[in-house]
């Protein structure tokens, strides 16, 4: 097991295991950058903590608000970062964000065919499959087949819109609010908003009966 809370990132993490080539390179580069004063061990620890703190829960909170508050949703669609800032979330360092809405007639799904652009501020680190060569190759060419692999079958008359984000924009899908969720609290609604539904490969979860 890796110790994710290692207080001192210099300490060997697996004293009994040999370091792989790449682990050696990371350790060596980090140690040298610290020696040269370009960064500190504390900086690295904080950056890892920041990374751990970002999760799809942030995105889910935004979506749940959009489901219950039509004005917020309009704001989100018009200027996503400004809208999210009104929730007290610090968006200063974020890339430009565009929210796209799923409707009964339009389904959106996001990819980055050239690398792995992803709205990390809202969703955390991307899943392995999002970064995979196969997803990147296929979803632009046969989106419906790919969505079926994720268990999502869409009627032929629904317009599937694939967003290939190539550089400066990040895309967030606003999934459709599931039926039967009238009267649910915003917090309970957020529980239905999965990471995959905000990428667009699935719908939001149905409420448990």
């Amino acid at each position: 097991m890796h110790d994710h809370d290692a207080p001192d990132s210099h300490l060997p993490l697996e004293a009994d295991a040999e370091l792989t080539y790449y682990e050696q390179r990371v350790e060596a580069i980090q140690a040298l950058l610290i020696e040269k004063g370009l960064l500190s061990a504390d900086d690295v620890r904080r950056a890892v903590e920041d990374m751990d703190a970002r999760s799809p829960a942030v995105g889910a909170r935004v979506i749940a608000r959009a489901w219950v508050d039509p004005h917020f949703k309009q704001h989100l669609l018009a200027d996503a970062k400004a809208a999210i800032a009104t929730l007290g979330i610090d968006v200063d360092t974020w890339s430009t964000l565009v929210a796209v809405e799923n409707t009964p007639t339009i389904h959106n799904v996001v990819v980055c065919t050239l690398c792995s652009c992803y709205p990390r501020s809202l969703l955390g680190v991307p899943p392995d499959w999002y970064k995979s060569l196969n997803y990147r190759a296929r979803v632009v060419k046969e989106p419906r087949t790919v969505l079926e692999e994720f268990g999502l079958e869409l009627a032929p008359d629904i317009e599937v819109r694939v967003y290939d984000s190539t550089a400066d924009m990040r895309y967030l899908v606003i999934p459709q609010r599931p039926a039967g969720t009238e009267g649910m609290s915003e917090g309970a609604l957020a529980e239905l908003v999965t990471r995959d539904s905000m990428i667009g490969v699935t719908q939001a979860q149905e409420p448990s009966p």
Binding site: K141, E142, P156, V160, V162, D164
Partner: peptide, 28 residues
Amino acid sequence: LVRFDQTHIWAHAEPVPFCQNDRLLIDI
């Protein structure tokens, strides 16, 4: 943000199940 018809992009590809009004949107 530029929008394309899927059928225009992959016109010569092997038949895949996408529908006439599916679109691809890409930042250019």
